[in-house]
């Protein structure tokens, strides 16, 4: 999998040293990632490292991989305000010595993390929050279901806080790699609540996730028409104008801009106007 990590079109690739690595294989996994980062000719566009929890002996060894200068961000498990601030402090020192910046993506997977959500998300360097659905359900002693109703509230809260602070709201992965319909429904629900991205656990999930989170042709066409109309209105000194009989004001213009930015990010072209 590692050898082909760069070819599937993921926005970023997370190298996991935590739950997917047996405790006796942690050092071996670190060696493998280190040699991959330093020796593989092409790396994914963004490399994120999911480290072990701060209260483990492996945590500090994991962070030594930052010295490869090939890691763009750290994903912090079981994040709390205290552990996120401690990581940010450590990364600040690293940034000064290595001359580059690192993203922090706290994993929100404990009930207690939700009590501190705003403070965790406000720590300098945090660029996104990842909902850890499995551990959250485990902590809550509730069952994780295919429909995901149990994640409605955590998704909504995480999305609202992330939106307010201008960072990514990354949805929990969908565990069944053979259930395309289940994944699509799960991603649609997350998207409808304001999540802006979703983690995948298998490359075959990536196109389905992109299909949900990238803007549709209709949305792009609408956004283009709004922005074109705004240009014309601006020339005529109008702040508010109408398009197809509907009033267009600043929140709608902002939404149109966001859609075009997303289209650019997902490299979706502007469709032909059918008029």
């Amino acid at each position: 999998m590692m050898q082909t990590a760069d070819v599937f079109g993921a926005d970023s690739v997370i190298f996991d040293l935590e739950d997917s690595v047996h405790i006796n294989e942690k050092a071996s996994a670190r060696n493998l990632i280190k040699d991959y980062l330093l020796g593989h000719p092409v790396l994914p566009s963004k490399v994120i490292l999911r480290v072990n929890a701060p209260d483990t002996a492996d945590y500090s060894f994991d962070l030594q991989l930052l010295d490869t200068l090939k890691i763009d961000g750290i994903m912090l498990p079981k994040a709390s305000e205290k552990s996120t601030k401690a990581l940010a402090e450590m990364l600040k020192r690293k940034e000064e010595s290595l001359g580059r910046q690192f993203d922090i993506i706290p994993i929100i997977e404990l009930a207690s993390s939700f009590l501190e959500l705003k403070n965790i998300a406000s720590v300098k360097g945090v660029t996104g929050l990842l909902l850890g659905g499995e551990d959250f359900c485990s902590d809550m002693e509730i069952k994780r279901t295919r429909e995901g109703k149990e994640l409605w509230f955590p998704r909504a809260e995480l999305a609202i806080v992330s939106r307010a602070l201008g960072i990514d709201a990354i949805d929990t992965p969908f565990a069944d790699v053979n259930d395309d319909e289940g994944l699509t429904q799960d991603a649609l629900m997350a998207s409808s609540l304001g999540m802006t991205a979703k983690a995948a656990i298998h490359p075959r999930q990536i196109p389905l996730i992109h299909a949900v989170f990238s803007p549709s042709n209709d949305q792009i066409l609408w956004a283009k028409n709004v922005l074109d109309a705004e240009k014309k209105a601006s020339k005529n000194g109008l702040g508010v104008f109408s398009l197809d009989g509907k009033m267009i004001d600043q929140p709608i213009i902002k939404r149109a801009r966001t859609i075009m930015q997303k289209a650019q990010r997902y490299e979706v072209g502007v469709p032909e106007n059918e008029e």
Binding site: S28, N31, L32, D35, Y36, G39, H40
Partner: peptide
């Protein structure tokens, strides 16, 4: 690949 053999 080479890096895997080296790391292992």
């Amino acid at each position: 690949l080479d890096y895997t053999i080296r790391a292992r």
